[in-house]
Protein backbone atom coordinates (compact mmCIF):
# COMPACT_ATOMS: atom_id res chain seq x y z
CA UNK A 1 0.00 0.00 0.00
CA UNK A 2 3.05 2.19 0.39
CA UNK A 3 3.47 4.36 -2.65
CA UNK A 4 6.83 5.95 -3.11
CA UNK A 5 6.28 9.59 -3.92
CA UNK A 6 9.86 10.80 -3.36
CA UNK A 7 10.24 11.88 -6.98
CA UNK A 8 7.03 13.87 -6.96
CA UNK A 9 8.09 15.63 -3.77
CA UNK A 10 11.48 16.35 -5.27
CA UNK A 11 9.78 17.83 -8.33
CA UNK A 12 7.69 20.10 -6.13
CA UNK A 13 10.75 21.02 -4.09
CA UNK A 14 12.69 22.03 -7.15
CA UNK A 15 9.92 24.39 -8.26
CA UNK A 16 9.76 26.16 -4.93
CA UNK A 17 13.50 26.37 -4.35
CA UNK A 18 13.99 27.84 -7.80
CA UNK A 19 12.00 30.87 -6.72
CA UNK A 20 13.84 30.97 -3.42
CA UNK A 21 17.25 30.82 -5.05
CA UNK A 22 16.60 33.86 -7.22
CA UNK A 23 15.46 35.77 -4.18
CA UNK A 24 18.41 34.81 -2.01
CA UNK A 25 20.97 35.23 -4.74
CA UNK A 26 19.71 38.74 -5.40
CA UNK A 27 19.99 39.46 -1.74
CA UNK A 28 23.46 37.96 -1.56
CA UNK A 29 24.84 39.86 -4.48
CA UNK A 30 25.76 42.80 -2.30
CA UNK A 31 27.29 40.96 0.60
CA UNK A 32 28.56 37.66 -0.75
CA UNK A 33 32.01 36.99 0.56
CA UNK A 34 33.96 35.90 -2.48
CA UNK A 35 32.36 38.40 -4.80
CA UNK A 36 29.54 37.45 -7.09
CA UNK A 37 30.06 35.76 -10.40
CA UNK A 38 29.33 37.41 -13.69
CA UNK A 39 26.00 36.02 -14.90
CA UNK A 40 27.52 34.71 -18.14
CA UNK A 41 29.96 32.37 -16.47
CA UNK A 42 27.25 30.64 -14.46
CA UNK A 43 26.57 28.04 -17.12
CA UNK A 44 30.16 27.21 -17.94
CA UNK A 45 30.44 23.54 -18.82
CA UNK A 46 26.88 22.67 -17.86
CA UNK A 47 27.55 22.63 -14.11
CA UNK A 48 26.76 25.72 -12.12
CA UNK A 49 29.79 27.64 -10.89
CA UNK A 50 29.41 28.96 -7.40
CA UNK A 51 32.03 30.53 -5.14
CA UNK A 52 31.42 27.93 -2.46
CA UNK A 53 31.90 25.02 -4.83
CA UNK A 54 35.00 26.66 -6.28
CA UNK A 55 36.43 27.03 -2.82
CA UNK A 56 35.81 23.37 -2.07
CA UNK A 57 37.49 22.42 -5.34
CA UNK A 58 40.43 24.65 -4.46
CA UNK A 59 40.78 22.99 -1.07
CA UNK A 60 40.83 19.57 -2.76
CA UNK A 61 43.46 20.74 -5.23
CA UNK A 62 45.51 22.19 -2.40
CA UNK A 63 45.43 19.00 -0.36
CA UNK A 64 46.23 16.80 -3.33
CA UNK A 65 49.12 19.01 -4.32
CA UNK A 66 50.63 19.08 -0.87
CA UNK A 67 50.35 15.35 -0.27
CA UNK A 68 51.00 13.85 -3.68
CA UNK A 69 54.52 13.20 -4.95
CA UNK A 70 53.80 14.48 -8.44
CA UNK A 71 53.14 17.93 -9.89
CA UNK A 72 49.44 17.86 -10.74
CA UNK A 73 47.88 19.74 -13.69
CA UNK A 74 47.19 23.39 -13.00
CA UNK A 75 43.46 24.24 -12.70
CA UNK A 76 43.56 27.22 -15.07
CA UNK A 77 39.90 28.20 -15.07
CA UNK A 78 39.47 27.73 -11.33
CA UNK A 79 42.54 29.77 -10.43
CA UNK A 80 41.59 32.55 -12.84
CA UNK A 81 38.15 32.78 -11.23
CA UNK A 82 39.63 32.71 -7.73
CA UNK A 83 42.19 35.40 -8.43
CA UNK A 84 39.53 37.58 -10.01
CA UNK A 85 37.28 37.14 -6.98
CA UNK A 86 40.10 38.05 -4.61
CA UNK A 87 40.67 41.24 -6.56
CA UNK A 88 36.97 42.09 -6.65
CA UNK A 89 36.58 41.43 -2.96
CA UNK A 90 39.59 43.59 -2.14
CA UNK A 91 38.03 46.46 -4.05
CA UNK A 92 34.67 45.77 -2.46
CA UNK A 93 36.10 45.92 1.05
CA UNK A 94 37.93 49.09 0.22
CA UNK A 95 34.74 50.69 -1.08
CA UNK A 96 32.81 49.68 2.01
CA UNK A 97 35.44 50.98 4.39
CA UNK A 98 35.65 54.24 2.46
CA UNK A 99 31.91 54.67 2.56
CA UNK A 100 32.00 53.79 6.20
CA UNK A 101 34.54 56.51 6.92
CA UNK A 102 32.42 59.06 5.08
CA UNK A 103 29.28 58.29 7.02
CA UNK A 104 31.22 58.34 10.26
CA UNK A 105 32.60 61.77 9.41
CA UNK A 106 29.13 63.11 8.65
CA UNK A 107 27.82 61.84 11.91
CA UNK A 108 30.69 63.45 13.75
CA UNK A 109 29.84 66.69 12.02
CA UNK A 110 26.33 66.43 13.32
CA UNK A 111 27.73 65.97 16.79
CA UNK A 112 25.85 62.76 17.56
CA UNK A 113 28.80 60.93 18.98
CA UNK A 114 26.67 58.30 20.73
CA UNK A 115 24.82 57.33 17.59
CA UNK A 116 28.08 57.29 15.67
CA UNK A 117 29.79 54.86 17.99
CA UNK A 118 26.84 52.51 18.12
CA UNK A 119 26.54 52.32 14.35
CA UNK A 120 30.29 51.93 14.32
CA UNK A 121 29.96 48.75 16.39
CA UNK A 122 27.12 47.51 14.23
CA UNK A 123 28.94 48.08 10.99
CA UNK A 124 32.24 46.62 11.97
CA UNK A 125 31.32 42.96 12.20
CA UNK A 126 30.60 42.17 8.52
CA UNK A 127 33.67 44.09 7.46
CA UNK A 128 35.79 42.16 9.94
CA UNK A 129 34.41 38.84 8.76
CA UNK A 130 35.03 39.72 5.13
CA UNK A 131 38.61 40.67 5.83
CA UNK A 132 39.29 37.55 7.86
CA UNK A 133 37.72 35.41 5.17
CA UNK A 134 39.78 37.08 2.50
CA UNK A 135 42.93 36.52 4.53
CA UNK A 136 42.11 32.84 4.78
CA UNK A 137 41.44 32.48 1.08
CA UNK A 138 44.65 34.33 0.28
CA UNK A 139 46.55 32.01 2.58
CA UNK A 140 45.23 28.93 0.80
CA UNK A 141 46.07 30.35 -2.61
CA UNK A 142 49.53 31.40 -1.47
CA UNK A 143 50.28 28.05 0.09
CA UNK A 144 49.06 26.30 -3.05
CA UNK A 145 51.20 28.37 -5.40
CA UNK A 146 54.26 28.11 -3.18
CA UNK A 147 53.87 24.35 -2.94
CA UNK A 148 53.71 24.12 -6.71
CA UNK A 149 56.78 26.30 -7.11
CA UNK A 150 58.70 24.07 -4.70
CA UNK A 151 57.77 21.08 -6.84
CA UNK A 152 58.75 22.92 -10.01
CA UNK A 153 62.17 23.49 -8.43
CA UNK A 154 62.51 19.89 -7.38
CA UNK A 155 61.52 18.37 -10.70
CA UNK A 156 62.88 21.04 -13.02
CA UNK A 157 65.12 18.65 -14.95
CA UNK A 158 62.34 16.10 -15.18
CA UNK A 159 59.94 18.74 -16.47
CA UNK A 160 62.47 19.82 -19.07
CA UNK A 161 62.76 16.22 -20.19
CA UNK A 162 58.97 16.03 -20.43
CA UNK A 163 58.87 19.15 -22.55
CA UNK A 164 61.29 17.63 -25.04
CA UNK A 165 59.34 14.41 -25.17
CA UNK A 166 56.90 14.62 -28.08
CA UNK A 167 54.56 11.74 -27.36
CA UNK A 168 53.14 13.19 -24.18
CA UNK A 169 49.49 13.29 -23.33
CA UNK A 170 49.50 16.53 -21.34
CA UNK A 171 51.50 19.42 -22.81
CA UNK A 172 53.59 21.43 -20.41
CA UNK A 173 51.38 24.50 -20.83
CA UNK A 174 48.48 22.57 -19.31
CA UNK A 175 50.55 21.21 -16.49
CA UNK A 176 51.92 24.62 -15.48
CA UNK A 177 50.49 28.09 -15.46
CA UNK A 178 52.07 30.82 -17.55
CA UNK A 179 53.85 32.25 -14.53
CA UNK A 180 55.08 28.88 -13.40
CA UNK A 181 56.48 28.22 -16.86
CA UNK A 182 58.37 31.48 -16.73
CA UNK A 183 59.63 30.70 -13.24
CA UNK A 184 60.76 27.27 -14.37
CA UNK A 185 62.66 28.66 -17.36
CA UNK A 186 64.36 31.44 -15.52
CA UNK A 187 65.22 29.55 -12.38
CA UNK A 188 66.77 26.66 -14.24
CA UNK A 189 68.68 29.17 -16.36
CA UNK A 190 70.26 30.95 -13.39
CA UNK A 191 70.91 27.69 -11.57
CA UNK A 192 72.62 26.32 -14.64
CA UNK A 193 74.67 29.47 -14.90
CA UNK A 194 75.84 29.04 -11.31
CA UNK A 195 76.75 25.38 -11.75
CA UNK A 196 78.42 26.03 -15.08
CA UNK A 197 80.62 28.82 -13.81
CA UNK A 198 81.69 27.00 -10.65
CA UNK A 199 81.95 23.35 -11.60
CA UNK A 200 80.96 22.17 -15.03
CA UNK A 201 83.39 24.45 -16.83
CA UNK A 202 86.27 22.40 -15.44
CA UNK A 203 84.85 19.08 -16.48
CA UNK A 204 85.81 17.12 -19.58
CA UNK A 205 83.22 17.64 -22.32
CA UNK A 206 81.59 14.24 -21.93
CA UNK A 207 80.76 14.99 -18.29
CA UNK A 208 79.39 18.49 -18.69
CA UNK A 209 75.69 17.67 -18.84
CA UNK A 210 73.53 18.13 -15.76
CA UNK A 211 70.78 15.86 -17.04
CA UNK A 212 72.96 12.87 -17.76
CA UNK A 213 71.08 9.61 -17.38
CA UNK A 214 73.67 7.29 -18.92
CA UNK A 215 76.19 7.58 -16.06
CA UNK A 216 76.39 5.41 -13.00
CA UNK A 217 73.69 7.48 -11.31
CA UNK A 218 70.67 9.05 -12.97
CA UNK A 219 70.79 12.79 -12.59
CA UNK A 220 67.15 13.49 -13.41
CA UNK A 221 64.97 13.09 -10.37
CA UNK A 222 61.59 11.65 -11.16
CA UNK A 223 58.59 11.82 -8.86
CA UNK A 224 58.39 8.97 -6.41
CA UNK A 225 55.60 7.15 -8.17
CA UNK A 226 55.15 4.40 -5.61
CA UNK A 227 55.15 6.49 -2.47
CA UNK A 228 52.44 5.56 0.00
CA UNK A 229 49.61 8.04 0.40
CA UNK A 230 46.44 8.15 2.45
CA UNK A 231 43.37 8.29 0.25
CA UNK A 232 39.70 8.91 0.96
CA UNK A 233 37.33 7.36 -1.58
CA UNK A 234 34.77 10.02 -2.37
CA UNK A 235 32.82 8.30 -5.08
CA UNK A 236 31.31 9.96 -8.15
CA UNK A 237 31.07 13.73 -7.98
CA UNK A 238 27.33 13.94 -8.61
CA UNK A 239 25.04 11.19 -7.30
CA UNK A 240 22.74 11.24 -10.31
CA UNK A 241 24.87 10.06 -13.21
CA UNK A 242 26.25 6.56 -12.68
CA UNK A 243 29.95 5.94 -13.01
CA UNK A 244 30.91 3.05 -15.30
CA UNK A 245 33.99 2.23 -13.22
CA UNK A 246 31.92 1.94 -10.08
CA UNK A 247 30.87 -1.56 -9.17
CA UNK A 248 28.32 -2.76 -6.65
CA UNK A 249 29.33 -5.51 -4.31
CA UNK A 250 27.10 -8.28 -2.96
CA UNK A 251 26.34 -6.35 0.21
CA UNK A 252 25.16 -3.29 -1.72
CA UNK A 253 28.32 -1.27 -1.26
CA UNK A 254 29.89 0.61 -4.14
CA UNK A 255 33.57 0.20 -4.82
CA UNK A 256 36.26 0.82 -7.42
CA UNK A 257 38.49 -2.00 -8.53
CA UNK A 258 42.17 -1.17 -8.81
CA UNK A 259 45.04 -3.46 -9.71
CA UNK A 260 48.36 -3.42 -7.88
CA UNK A 261 50.80 -4.27 -10.66
CA UNK A 262 53.78 -5.73 -8.80
CA UNK A 263 51.67 -7.94 -6.53
CA UNK A 264 49.07 -8.79 -9.20
CA UNK A 265 46.41 -8.25 -6.62
CA UNK A 266 43.02 -6.60 -7.01
CA UNK A 267 41.82 -4.21 -4.33
CA UNK A 268 38.30 -2.94 -3.79
CA UNK A 269 38.16 0.71 -2.79
CA UNK A 270 34.82 1.06 -1.05
CA UNK A 271 33.18 4.48 -1.31
CA UNK A 272 33.52 6.47 1.91
CA UNK A 273 36.50 4.67 3.40
CA UNK A 274 40.16 5.45 3.86
CA UNK A 275 43.13 3.47 2.52
CA UNK A 276 46.90 3.64 2.47
CA UNK A 277 47.92 3.02 -1.11
CA UNK A 278 50.81 3.43 -3.48
CA UNK A 279 50.38 6.62 -5.48
CA UNK A 280 50.62 5.06 -8.93
CA UNK A 281 47.80 2.65 -8.11
CA UNK A 282 45.27 5.41 -7.44
CA UNK A 283 46.74 8.08 -9.74
CA UNK A 284 43.99 7.83 -12.38
CA UNK A 285 41.24 8.06 -9.78
CA UNK A 286 42.88 11.10 -8.19
CA UNK A 287 43.12 12.89 -11.53
CA UNK A 288 39.42 12.17 -12.14
CA UNK A 289 38.55 13.51 -8.69
CA UNK A 290 36.93 10.30 -7.45
CA UNK A 291 39.53 9.84 -4.73
CA UNK A 292 41.14 12.48 -2.51
CA UNK A 293 44.42 12.53 -0.70
CA UNK A 294 44.17 13.25 3.00
Amino acid sequence: MNIDIEDILADLDRDTTAVDQTLTSQGQNDTTVFGSDAPGSDKAGGTAVSPVRDFEALMTHWRNERLGPELLPYPHALMARMLRRVQEQLEHIECISMGYLETLGEEDDHGTSDGGSSSNVLNKLPLLCMEADLERLKFVLRSYVRCRLAKVDKYSLYLRQLAQDNERVVPLSDLLSRQELEYHERHSAILLKLLNSTILRHMPPELQAVDDNEGSVKMVEEPEWDRFVFVYVRGPTSPRDPDPALEVGPDGQCFYNVMIQELREEVELTVGSIYVMRYNVVRELILEGKVELI
Binding site: L83, V86, Q87, L90, A132, E135, R136, K138, F139, L141, R142, S143, V145, R146, L149, S177, R178, Q179, E182, Y183, R186, H187, I190, K193
Partner: peptide
Amino acid sequence: DYVQLITDMKSGDYTDIDLSGSLTPP
Protein backbone atom coordinates in the same frame (compact mmCIF):
# COMPACT_ATOMS: atom_id res chain seq x y z
CA ASP B 1 69.16 36.99 -9.90
CA TYR B 2 66.87 34.82 -7.82
CA VAL B 3 65.60 37.71 -5.71
CA GLN B 4 64.85 39.53 -8.94
CA LEU B 5 62.96 36.48 -10.18
CA ILE B 6 60.88 36.33 -7.01
CA THR B 7 60.04 40.00 -7.31
CA ASP B 8 58.92 39.49 -10.89
CA MET B 9 56.78 36.52 -9.89
CA LYS B 10 55.03 38.54 -7.24
CA SER B 11 54.21 41.36 -9.59
CA GLY B 12 52.50 39.12 -12.15
CA ASP B 13 49.13 37.43 -11.80
CA TYR B 14 49.65 36.78 -8.13
CA THR B 15 49.76 40.42 -7.03
CA ASP B 16 46.83 40.14 -4.68
CA ILE B 17 48.04 37.06 -2.88
CA ASP B 18 51.36 38.06 -1.42
CA LEU B 19 53.52 35.07 -2.34
CA SER B 20 56.30 35.67 0.16
CA GLY B 21 53.82 36.15 2.97
CA SER B 22 53.43 33.94 5.97
CA LEU B 23 52.79 30.25 5.44
CA THR B 24 51.18 29.72 8.82
CA PRO B 25 47.43 29.97 8.51
CA PRO B 26 45.80 33.10 9.94
